[in-house]
């Protein structure tokens, strides 16, 4: 395996959790809800996914547990913001703080255990193609799932009636409600989808990316996923591009640390966060681009009148 190929594969591994979480959040925001709890749902998915995989010996049951816990955890947020109409920003923060706290508590007994690993895909002949074989046909199954997920969400949002309904709820909840659409139900479902994705992304971190549990192991990836949605101006394929860009920055700085280029490792480690800021600035300074694409009801409270 060549050096370049190895680097490209690790970039994909770093990008996959960002992509999954960001695509999930994209659906949530398209329905008009801003859930800042991605980091919290992700870290809960990471701890439960790790624990379930360890207990059962099956990484797949680990992923399943991460998805279920992510979705259930997001229900807390949905109940508060959609049923009790609390402030979405504050409630999302609460979800993140609670998730970081709970996962630290739940995961205390799992620190230091080696995780259950997930085997990479192997397709005879195809995987053995030199240079591109492993890159396209020999990665972990969740990598392929993340690409399918992006395609599926893009198709759902822009090619199906249900997707149109979801976007209409996000753009003008009052009109959607007047048309007889159940705004609150659709938002509940969207939030739970986002929770499931964030949970899976967390599970990926603790089962595939670094197979172990470390407190706060998401290290801001949930927030970067949120930034990716803005960066992508709420378009699924642009999320994919953004996730791989960030994957490249993350892996690039790791390689720079390993090479010892004389820059302190902490400053290199802060590159992904600084890159997030720079990218956000570049995108948001273009007001027309953001104005056109931002779901118009994003973050606004909605109380159905009956």
């Amino acid at each position: 395996m060549g050096m370049l190929e190895a680097i490209l594969i690790t970039i994909a591994t770093a990008a996959t959790p960002l992509l999954i979480a960001a695509v999930g959040e994209l659906v949530v925001e398209r329905s008009g809800v801003l859930n800042l709890g991605v980091e919290g749902m992700m870290v809960m998915g990471a701890v439960t996914g790790f624990a379930a995989a360890l207990a059962t010996g099956s990484p797949w049951l680990g992923f399943l547990a991460a998805i279920v816990v992510g979705a259930l955890f997001s229900l807390l947020f949905a109940f508060l913001t959609l049923t009790l109409v609390t402030n979405q920003v504050a409630t999302g923060l609460a979800l993140t703080l609670l998730g970081l706290g709970l996962s630290g508590m739940l995961g205390e007994g799992f620190v230091g255990f080696p995780g259950v690993k997930l085997a990479n895909v192997y397709i005879p002949v195809l995987t053995d193609i030199p240079l591109v074989g492993k890159l396209f046909f020999g990665q972990d199954p969740i990598f392929y799932l993340s690409i399918l997920l992006t395609a599926g969400v893009a198709y759902f949002l822009f090619r199906t009636r249900a997707g149109l309904t979801l976007r209409s709820v996000g753009d003008n909840h009052a009109s959607a409600h007047a048309l007889g659409i159940n705004v609150v139900l659709i938002r509940y479902l969207a939030v739970m989808f986002g929770g499931a994705c964030a949970g899976l992304a967390g599970g990926y971190l603790s089962i595939v990316y670094t197979p172990q549990w470390v407190e706060n192991m998401t290290a801001g990836r949930g927030w970067i996923a949120l930034a990716l949605v803005v960066f992508a101006s709420w378009r699924p394929w642009r999320v994919l591009a953004g996730a791989y860009l960030f994957g490249a920055v993350t892996i690039g700085q790791l390689h720079a640390q390993a090479l010892g280029i004389g820059v302190p490792s902490q400053l290199l480690s802060s590159l992904p966060y600084l890159a997030t800021i720079v990218v956000l600035v570049l995108i948001s300074r273009n007001r027309r681009l953001t104005m056109v694409n931002t779901p118009a009801s994003l973050g606004r409270p909605f109380v159905p009148d009956r």
Binding site: V89, A227, Q266, L267, Y273, T276, I277, L280, V281, R285
Partner: peptide, 30 residues
Amino acid sequence: LKTRFNTNEILTSLMLVYVAQLFLDWMVRG
């Protein structure tokens, strides 16, 4: 960044937390 470029202050202020933590870590070790 919010006033000049319309950038979301939630995300930028949070990202700067990680940068500050790493900066402190470097200074006290270096």
